[in-house]
Amino acid sequence: MNKLIISPSPHVHGEFSTKRLMRDVVIALLPALLVSFYFFGFGAVKVVGLSVISCVVFEFLIQKFLLKTAPSINDLSAVVTGLILSLNLPSNLPWWIVIIGSLIAIGVGKMVFGGLGNNPFNPALVGRVFLLIARPVEMTTWPLPLTAVTPDATTGATPLAIIKEGLKNGLTIDQIKESSDYTFSYLDTLFGQIGGSLGEVSAVALLLGFAYLLVRKVITWHIPVSIFAAVIVFSGILHFANPDRFIDPLFHLLTGGMILGAVYMATDYVTSPMTLKGMMVYGTGIGLLTILIRTFGSYPEGISFAILFMNAIVPLINKYMKPKLFGEVK
């Protein structure tokens, strides 16, 4: 017999480990990835591969040579960052922009704060927003899905951008829907027949992943559902107040990476609140801000900014949204 091991209780451990949680996120993203490969072809494969590999490599290099700590790429968190970043990019993005985005995501988004667990903002979103501001043209030239490409149109605007552009030109929502740009149905947004980034095209694939994450208890329903609820309520009120100016809630839900953001980016452990109450507040805030930015801001899409903004408020939420103590007496 070896030396007995002594430790304080408990002496058994549950099934969770950081690696398992991250692996489950990767698995949950697989349907969305496959759909994007199907619609965008080799371009999508290239962007995803490049983004994942460069994120992992950057993490490894920074840990090894700058922070001089034991590299922890085994926990797969860099893979998740890379995947989520790539799902936010258009499939025709030049390779060097993808690499710069990865560097910003890992370097500025995560490592400067001390690595996994210490970053206040979602790393993938930091990378994405950096690219969106630094290279707006490349970042908003969305290739059409291979199935929707016609000889004279290989790129197109996203549904939200079409609406925004139309409204700017003084059209009403109904007029925009009848215009020639508006070539898709709600069914298309559900399955991915629209222009956009890799991950925002197919709602069904993303929801499949959501179900998987819930079953595996990786995340709870609180953040995504409160985001969806806030979006539906807020955009619903606007829509009923003025249907000519504001599009219906369903459109908001299905387009512009809403599901990708709500399920995979807002729920990032490190940058979301710690309590269920806090998660609801956080989710509601994201939903409201997204609609606010989409309908009144200058960018057609708002969820990235909304999440980053709410990330900044998370410490405050954690401070005030404490769980109610067992048997608490006031």
Binding site: S7, F16, L116, T220, Y269, T275, P323
Partner: peptide
């Protein structure tokens, strides 16, 4: 018998959800 290797807290809030006394 041995505990797993300690790593950074990823703020997953699983401990908050598991605490029967609703502490943090």
């Amino acid at each position: 018998a041995k505990r797993g290797t300690k790593s950074n807290c990823i703020r997953c809030s699983k401990c908050v959800a598991a605490c029967p006394m609703r502490l943090q």
